[in-house]
């Protein structure tokens, strides 16, 4: 029986002569290896996709920040039927389903056809209409309706969605001017001519709203604005080349 006691005191032997703790360690290491590979692979995919386009919509990179006020572009710029968050149809007081009112982008973003920036409208612009119209259930609209001249809640701290790097000087005005001029025989990246011409006005010009979507995506169908296009330099240069626009570096970088 002495030999039996001895085997109990020895390290338990496997078939291959390895100790049992090694046997446990192998799958742990294997799993760890798989895990590290997965993480590295994810990081690589993230950076590669971010290099060529928009980064993966994770870790706050979904290009669609939550705004301080849930401003629905669907109701203002869109003209389709409106739905609540739960999917039910949005009704007015008389039980009619609401549709968007189809405003042109320049109704609120007024400086876009004249200057560098589109501009965020001041609260005053909202109040102009919402003094008298809008749901009584909505908290921000109630605030707009009851706000007095004396109590200034300050500007709304909107989160910026479309941002170009600091070394890029983008000016909206010439782009809107070019794209709304149907006399130009231009090729617009990512868009077909028919869609532009569908928005042609009686005087031959094109609604700015139709051209904005070239870079901003279909804003009028977004309840929460997201950056759709990657807005990388390649995209700019592609379009500039197709349309005989200047491609000198100092067009945008100075």
């Amino acid at each position: 029986m002495a030999s039996g006691e001895k085997t109990l005191n020895e390290q338990p032997q496997t078939d291959n002569g390895r100790p049992a703790w090694v046997k446990v360690l192998i799958p742990v290491l294997a799993l760890g290896g798989v895990g590290v590979t997965a993480v590295l692979g994810f990081v690589m995919v993230f950076f590669i996709t971010a290099w060529f386009g928009n980064p993966l919509p994770v870790l706050g990179f979904d290009q669609s920040p939550v705004q301080p006020i849930a401003f629905p572009h669907t109701a203002h710029a869109g003209s389709e039927l409106l739905f609540n968050d739960d999917g039910s149809a949005k009704m007015d007081a008389e039980g009619k389903q609401l549709t968007g009112i189809g405003l042109d982008c320049t109704f609120c973003h007024r400086t876009v056809t004249d200057t560098n920036v589109a501009g965020i409208p001041p609260v005053e612009t909202c109040v102009t209409c919402h003094r008298v119209i809008g749901s009584t259930q909505s908290e921000p609209l109630t605030l707009l309706r009851t706000i007095g001249l004396g109590d200034d809640p300050g500007p709304i701290q909107w989160k910026r969605v479309h941002r170009l790097p600091d070394h890029v000087r983008f000016v909206h005005e010439p782009h809107i001017r070019f794209l709304t001029d149907v006399g130009n025989t231009h090729v617009i990246a990512n868009r077909d001519e028919a869609a532009i011409l569908a928005g042609t006005q009686s005087d031959g010009s094109v609604l700015a709203a139709v051209t904005c979507s070239t870079c901003h995506g279909d804003i009028k169908s977004q309840t929460q604005v997201a950056q759709v296009e990657p807005l990388k330099m390649g995209q700019c240069v592609d379009c500039h080349r197709k349309n005989d626009a200047p491609t000198d570096c100092t067009t945008c970088h100075f």
Binding site: P165, H167, D248, C249, T250, H253, F254
Partner: peptide, 15 residues
Amino acid sequence: TYHNTEGMNVQIYNR
């Protein structure tokens, strides 16, 4: 830094 089509010697900072 290069000479552009407008006769200017330009400096591109991000390059």
